[in-house]
């Protein structure tokens, strides 16, 4: 556990039971939200970069698609880490399960959309 994370309610701590530290509730301490400020700036930067890469056609279509997808992946990680408090939890990390579902759905939707829309590349 990182030093800056604290345990707000010691009575609920299970640290005495060896190997179960991960069950402790952990929350980031309350202070001025600099990570969020940086995160907001970062997400704007990633979005702007995607728009300009496409506008300026820096790469052929397939490479451009891959690059934008990579930027989107970075964006997702940033949102989860900075704004969605993914590292905080109250007890077991239940959020992993719906998060997994989210990733399956997101990848399926994006992947299948690309697959469906490839018909145009053949036509043009």
């Amino acid at each position: 556990m990182r030093a800056e994370l604290q345990t707000p309610d010691p009575s609920r701590s299970t640290e005495t039971e060896a190997g179960f530290e991960f069950l402790n509730p952990h929350f980031a301490p309350e202070r001025f939200p600099w990570p969020q400020v940086w995160g907001y700036g970062g997400s704007l930067l990633l979005t702007g970069a995607a728009v300009y890469l496409v506008l300026l056609h820096v790469l052929p279509a397939a490479g451009l698609g891959a690059l934008v997808l990579a930027l989107a992946g970075g964006q997702a990680l940033l949102q989860l880490g900075v704004f969605m408090h993914i590292r905080e939890s109250r007890g077991p990390a239940w959020q992993i399960l719906p998060l997994g579902l989210s990733f399956v759905i997101a990848f399926a939707l994006v992947g299948m959309s690309i697959w469906i829309m490839t018909f145009k590349w053949g036509a043009s």
Partner: peptide, 21 residues
């Protein structure tokens, strides 16, 4: 709920995306 995310292209079969799609 999960399956309903994998069916949307049936609204535009005639777009011509190809037999596999």
């Amino acid at each position: 709920m999960v399956l309903s995310y994998g069916v949307w292209a049936h609204h535009f079969f005639t777009m011509g995306a190809g037999a596999a799609v």
